[in-house]
Amino acid sequence: MRPSVGGGSETQAKDLCLRLLTDRARTRAELAERLAQKGYSADVTERVLDRLSEVGLIDDADFARQWVRSRHTYSGKGKRALAMELRRKGIGREDATEALAQIDVDDERQRASELVAKKLRTMSVDDRDRAARRLVSMLARRGFPQSVAFEVVKEQLDRAGAEADGMFDEP
């Protein structure tokens, strides 16, 4: 049943939010946007979202912490990319800053190093400069700081070169 323009009951709005929350956690802004798309009034939307927040079903700070941890660990995103994703999801600056504080420079460096090492297994390093540009670009697209990207790529290329040199040594 589709609510009419400007309308729909609180119960219908709450049911829609609960259905959306069964798929995955969502931010208050995402739910508000979805309710607006379905034609619910701002007043109904506000009351429903306030109630869902009161009972703990919507918690933007918790969402941000989980999102950052998951996307950094499993998608290999750097802080800059994660900050943009949180902004698009409607997370406030304070909650985003707190969530991003979970990742320190060492965490970013380690994750970048893992990504480069993985990529090096499938790419040719015959042209070291070209390989370095491609790897730094990959890390930049994922939101890693340029300084970290350059350091990690140089380190990994040096390591890959040393391992390749060692392959032809006699035991």
Rank of each mutant, 00 (worst) to 15 (best):
M1A: 13
R2Q: 04
P3M: 10
G6V: 01
G6F: 06
G7V: 02
G8T: 07
G8D: 04
E10N: 10
E10C: 02
T11H: 08
K14M: 12
D15M: 14
D15T: 15
C17N: 06
L18Y: 08
L18V: 12
R19Y: 07
L20H: 07
L21I: 09
D23G: 09
R24T: 07
A25N: 10
A25C: 09
A25S: 14
R26W: 13
R26P: 11
T27R: 05
T27V: 12
T27F: 13
R28A: 11
A29Y: 08
A29L: 13
L31V: 02
E33Q: 12
E33F: 06
E33H: 09
L35Q: 02
Q37E: 13
K38R: 15
K38Y: 04
G39N: 06
G39R: 00
Y40S: 00
A42L: 09
A42I: 03
V44K: 04
V44P: 01
V44T: 13
E46H: 14
R47Y: 02
V48R: 00
V48Y: 00
V48L: 00
L49H: 00
R51P: 00
S53Y: 05
V55K: 08
G56P: 01
L57M: 13
L57G: 02
D59P: 09
D59N: 15
D59Q: 05
D60Y: 01
F63I: 07
Q66F: 08
V68E: 03
H72A: 10
Y74W: 11
S75F: 12
S75G: 11
G78N: 05
G78F: 06
K79D: 03
K79E: 09
R80A: 15
A83P: 05
M84C: 11
E85G: 15
L86M: 06
R88N: 14
K89V: 09
G90D: 12
G90L: 03
G90S: 07
I91F: 00
I91L: 06
A96L: 07
E98S: 14
E98M: 08
A99D: 11
A99M: 12
A101M: 07
Q102C: 09
Q102T: 12
I103H: 05
I103Y: 06
D104W: 14
V105H: 15
D106V: 13
R109V: 01
S113C: 13
E114G: 09
L115G: 02
K118Y: 09
L120T: 08
R121S: 09
T122K: 15
S124E: 12
V125E: 06
D126L: 15
V136F: 02
M138E: 08
M138A: 04
M138I: 02
M138V: 04
L139R: 04
L139Q: 01
G143P: 03
P145W: 05
A149F: 06
F150H: 15
V153N: 00
K154E: 12
E155L: 08
Q156Y: 08
Q156G: 04
L157D: 03
D158G: 01
G161L: 08
E163N: 03
E163K: 10
A164I: 04
A164K: 10
G166A: 07
M167P: 01
F168A: 06
F168Q: 04
E170R: 10
P171Q: 05
